[in-house]
Design a binder for these strands. Structure first.
Lengths: 233, 233
DNA sequence: GTACATTCACTTGGCAACAAGATACATTGT
DNA sequence: ACAATGTATCTTGTTGCCAAGTGAATGTAC
């Protein structure tokens, strides 16, 4: 195990320093095993982990190649402006697709943070953020029907929640006590974000309030692919 | 590969929901392989990944057991108070050990951000943060000798940098444009933080200035174990 | 010469058999 | 009766062999 970890370390640093950048082909498992005087299985495990980490990909019969790494996008996390506005400030071509809008069963935590009764209806609206057609974040908004009665039918059409709120008379937004966690993608997340299993995700959970009335507008959970961003706070 | 990922997903959710909590022993590779109708190697790979992720540990001849998970400590990231002060606010028993204080060779990025000449001397001071004797973060401060002439001899004795700065007449501190990245531990990091290879680390990089003179006091790089904290920003 | 088929060398993927550690239990010697 | 030892059978760890994909070199018929 220690040998595998050493190899993984070594290969990552070589990949980052660009040793393989010329042809992008890594040495075959057999050759690397001979070079480091370890059984091929050790090299194999190292290569498999590098695949899970998104650094390389392997093709049976051909070999292993370094995966083109994503460019790092600076992202401002402290948020009283919307994601749409954040991205407009930068020069990236980005896009939002609403992928679901459905009522959720009663959930104590969500309902409490939205400050609504248990007989209220709460919808979760999932919007996928894409940059150059690559999914990089999933933005899930939990919204109560009592606050926005038309949310069920409006939901699928919304691209910017903040814009939607403004159209309904809420002008200034505030979010505090955002909590941040590092998680690994579930099968669903991997499918949606098209990432391998060991790409850590940054999960930001926050509450959006109207600054004037202090009313809770939405409970938000955003998961960002950590390999696409450098965050600024 | 898909089968392995499915198993990993399934087992993580079972571990989190506490299915194995009674005896903490997981089914043997052979039994699980039969249950899911997959070759043992698939179960093996899944178990190996769960080990790297820190969820379980395996002992030859005995079996595989769920690893006791760390308690999540809420940590306020926005920082004009020191780590020491942050921890004092909470009720945790924490400790700081200075593990290195040494001059670094010239590094353009560091020297530029410290706003010092290339013939200056810059020291990096590494302080390990422990909670209940478990290392949870490594705090590395880059300090220029031109700013703090006695830093080389003082360094090893410092537990709170902010306190050190105050003793030298700097009262108010500010840090902005902190950048945040998710990285995996190097061998050195793993050794220092006593974590397995797939524990993501949260790396926060920032610049500390004296608010009055706007002078740069230190360049700071902190790496936190992501499995110990819930961050609040 | 050219088009096609075959072989061969090299790659990664997968698996079955074996090795080694742990434990419970039966066996044996005193 | 009791302790030491062997043994059977679990467990995880390791290894070596072969399957399968790829592509270039080689052979072959026309």
């Amino acid at each position: 195990m220690a040998e595998k970890n050493f190899l993984v370390d070594h290969l990552i640093s070589e990949i980052k320093s660009g040793t393989f950048q010329s042809d992008k082909k890594l040495p075959s498992e057999h050759i690397l095993a001979d070079q480091f005087n370890v059984p091929r299985m050790v090299v194999r495990k190292a290569y498999e982990q590098l695949q899970d980490l998104g650094f390389i990909y392997s093709k049976q019969g051909k070999g292993s190649y370094v995966q083109e790494s994503k460019k790092q996008i600076p992202l401002i996390l402290s948020g009283d402006i919307s994601f749409t506005e954040k991205m407009n400030e930068l020069q990236f071509s980005f896009q939002t697709i609403t992928i679901f809008c459905e009522e959720i069963p009663y959930d104590q935590k969500i309902f409490q943070s939205l400050e609504v009764e248990s007989d209220d209806k709460v919808f979760k609206i999932g919007r996928l953020r894409l940059i150059d057609d690559f999914p990089i974040a999933l933005h899930t908004s939990f919204v109560a029907k009592s606050t926005f009665p038309e949310i069920e039918s409006d939901g699928p059409e919304i691209t910017s929640m903040f814009q939607y709120y403004r159209q309904r008379g809420y002008v200034e937004f505030g979010s505090n006590n955002s909590t941040l966690n590092v998680i690994f993608p579930t099968l669903f997340d991997r499918d949606i974000l098209q990432c391998s299993s060991l790409i850590p995700l940054l999960q930001v959970e926050s509450l959006c309030r109207d600054k004037r009335s202090n009313q809770v507008l939405e409970h938000t959970v955003i998961i960002y692919r950590s390999d696409c961003f450098t965050y600024v706070i």
